[in-house]
Computed example of a mutant assay.
Amino acid sequence: MAIFGELLATLKDHHGPNTQFQVIHEDLEMNDFNSLFKRMSGIIPDPPSYLLKMDNVYVLASGTNFYKQCIPSNSMHFMMSMTSVHWLSRTSTTFKNAIYKDAKSSTEETVALHKQAELDWETFLLRRSRELKRGGLLVVGICAVFEDRNTGENKYTMYSLVGLLNEVWKEYSESGKISKEEFVNTNISACYRTMKEMRKPFDNKTSPVSRSGLTLLSAEAVVNPDVFYNDWREKKDKEGIDDREEFARMYVSAHRNWSNSTFMNGLSDSRSLEEKEQIVDGLYDDVKKRISRMNPEIFKDDVKFIYLVIRKE
Rank of each mutant, 00 (worst) to 15 (best):
N65S: 08
N74S: 15
N65A: 01
K68I: 00
S49I: 12
S73G: 08
N65E: 00
H77D: 05
S75F: 07
G63D: 09
S75Q: 03
S49R: 04
I71N: 10
S49A: 14
Y50V: 03
A61Y: 02
Q69F: 08
Y50K: 12
L51V: 06
M54E: 13
I71S: 05
L60M: 12
P45K: 11
M54L: 05
S49G: 13
Y50N: 05
L51P: 06
V59A: 04
C70K: 08
G63H: 07
S73V: 13
L51I: 07
Y58K: 10
N74W: 15
D55K: 05
K68G: 06
N56D: 08
G63E: 02
F66D: 01
N74D: 13
D55E: 09
T64H: 04
C70G: 10
Y67P: 00
K68T: 07
N74V: 15
S49E: 06
P48G: 13
S75E: 04
D46L: 14
L60Q: 08
L60T: 09
K68H: 09
Y67S: 00
K68E: 09
I71K: 03
V59Q: 02
S73Q: 09
N74H: 14
C70E: 08
F66W: 08
L52F: 13
L52D: 13
F66E: 02
N65C: 02
D55F: 03
M76K: 06
Y58W: 05
Y67R: 00
L51A: 12
P45Q: 04
P72A: 01
S73D: 14
V59I: 01
Y50P: 02
C70A: 13
P47Q: 15
Y58Q: 11
Q69S: 12
P48E: 10
Y58S: 07
Y67K: 00
T64C: 02
H77R: 10
S49N: 07
C70L: 03
K68N: 09
